[in-house]
Amino acid sequence: MTATAARPAAVPLGPPPSMVVKKFVSRVLFYVVIALLLVFFMLPMLWIVLAPFDASPSLTIKLPDFSTGNFSELWHNPYALRSLLNALIISLGTMALVLVFGALASYALSRVRVPGRDALLYALLLLSSIVSGTAAMVPIFLLMTNVHLIDSQLGVVLVMTGGLLPAAIFILKDFMDATPRSYEESAKVFGASPLQILRHVVIPIARPGLATIAVWALVNAWGNFLVPFILLRSADKYPAAVVMYTFYTEGGQPKLGLISAFSLMYSIPVVIAYLVVSRRYGFRFHGGIKS
C-alpha cells in the first residue's frame, strides 16, 4: 500500500519514444538484410527452374520464352541420360556400402570397449576429409592403377565409400549408443544370435539414423565430381556431374540450354530423396529411443 502511494503519478508507461524508434529501425534493417540474403540465394534456384524452359537461355533471370527444345536436345545427347544412370549406379552403390559397413562398424564400436576408441574415431573423421579430397588424389590414382580399378565404377564407389565411412560411423555410433542395451540383452536371453539381434532389434531401432546416413551418402556421391573425373576414362561410364562438364560448344562457350535442363534433371532425384526421408524420419540426428 505504501509503495503504490509513494510512486509518482506522472511516470509514462513503456519505454521513452526515442527507444521505440530505435527498435523499429533495427527491426527494419534486420529484415532488409534477411531479404537481400534470401534474394542472393534464391537467384540460382530461380535460374535453374526458369532457364531450362527458355528457347535462348542466358545467365540472367527472365521470364522464359517457353520452349522444351533444351530437353529434346538433351534426349538426343549420347551421354546425358546414360550419365544419370551411371550417377545412380555409383551413388546407390556407395550408399549401400556406407550403410552396411557403417552399421556394422558403429554397432561394434558402440558395444565393445576398445582402448582409445574415441581417439580412433576422431582421427578417422579428420582423415576422411583428406581421403576423398583433392590432396590425396595422386596417391589414390596410383593405388587404383595398381589394383586395376581405373576406369571402373567399382573403383569410384570404393573410394567414395572410404571417404564417407568415417563420418557415417561417427554419426551412427551416436544412434547405436542411444539404444538401451537391455533390448539386446532381452533378445539374447530368448536365444537370439548376434546377427538376429542386429536384424530384429538394433537396425529397426536405428532406422532413422540409417535413413539419414543413406540420404547423406547418396547426395554426396551423386554430387561428387572430382573422384569420377579422375578415376574414369571412358565417357560412357561418366556420371552426370562429369558429363555436365562436357557441355560446351566447339568454341568453348557453355551450352546454357543443355546445362540448365540437365541441372534441373540432375537435382530432382536429390530433392525427392530428401523429401521422402524428411517426411518419414524428420531428419533427426539424435533419434534414439528413450527407455
Binding site: Y183, S186, V189, G191, H200, V201, P204
Partner: peptide
C-alpha cells in the same frame, strides 16, 4: 549361453521392442 539355459528375464525397463506391436513382442 543365455538362450540355452531355459530361463526368461524381465528387465527393469521391460525392454519391450519399440518397433514391434504387443503381439510381436510377446511372440518374439
Amino acid at each position: 549361453p543365455p538362450g540355452k539355459r531355459d530361463i526368461a528375464m524381465v528387465f527393469q525397463d521391460y525392454a519391450l521392442f519399440p518397433h514391434m506391436d504387443v503381439a510381436d513382442n510377446i511372440a518374439y
